[in-house]
């Protein structure tokens, strides 16, 4: 068993376990930490796949930003120790497992190469150089327009969040 496969198994365990904790925990804070574990696992996958830049972004933005945001959200709302409704999970689980089965069948049932991808060739060697990622963002033949739109989106989200979350009293009632 090579180191890569070992790492993959560890990360997969962490990711799925984090997801299960998020699903199963009765405490919001535990769920948030489960989410964090899962996100860190995904960041590890990014490293394995050769995308260091995305891994770092994942850790900084998701773990450092979004999860903290959720923790704030948890703090600002009342503790909600909800009962685990087996019935609800079962109903949802029927659909979810059906979806999973279909998806896995679609993947593992497929023979050989598909869509020009050889599933056994392994991740790209060398990985994505950050310089190239930056150039791709700034190249108008590549991703400049989506990049600009994303920046506008972030600005709108910033302003919108402030506008939505401010107190009613701010409008002079």
């Amino acid at each position: 068993m090579s180191a890569e496969i070992l790492a993959f198994l560890v990360l997969a365990t962490a990711t799925v376990a984090g997801g299960v904790v998020t699903l199963w925990s009765r405490y919001v804070v535990h769920s948030a930490f489960g989410l964090m574990l899962s996100l860190l696992g995904v960041a590890g996958f990014y490293v394995l796949l050769g995308s260091d830049f995305l891994a770092v972004t994942q850790v900084v933005v998701y773990v450092g930003g979004v999860v903290v945001l959720y923790l704030f959200g948890v703090m600002l709302t009342p503790p909600d120790r909800e009962e685990r409704s087996i019935r609800r999970i079962a109903v949802a689980g029927i659909f979810a497992v059906a979806a999973l089965v279909v998806l896995l069948k679609a993947v593992f049932g497929m023979e050989g190469r598909w869509y020009g991808v050889d599933p056994d060739r392994g991740p790209a060697s060398g990985g994505a150089v950050i310089r190239e990622v930056g150039n791709a963002f700034m190249d108008k033949e590549a991703y400049l327009l989506p990049f600009e739109i994303a920046s506008v989106l972030l600005l709108v989200a910033l302003v919108g969040a402030v506008f939505i979350a401010r107190r009613e009293g701010g409008r002079g009632s």
Partner: peptide, 16 residues
């Protein structure tokens, strides 16, 4: 959302 997921799954099932 449940209906949405169920519908999407149904489409996949039919497709495959």
């Amino acid at each position: 959302i449940t209906l949405l997921a169920g519908g999407a799954t149904a489409v996949l099932v039919i497709f495959y």
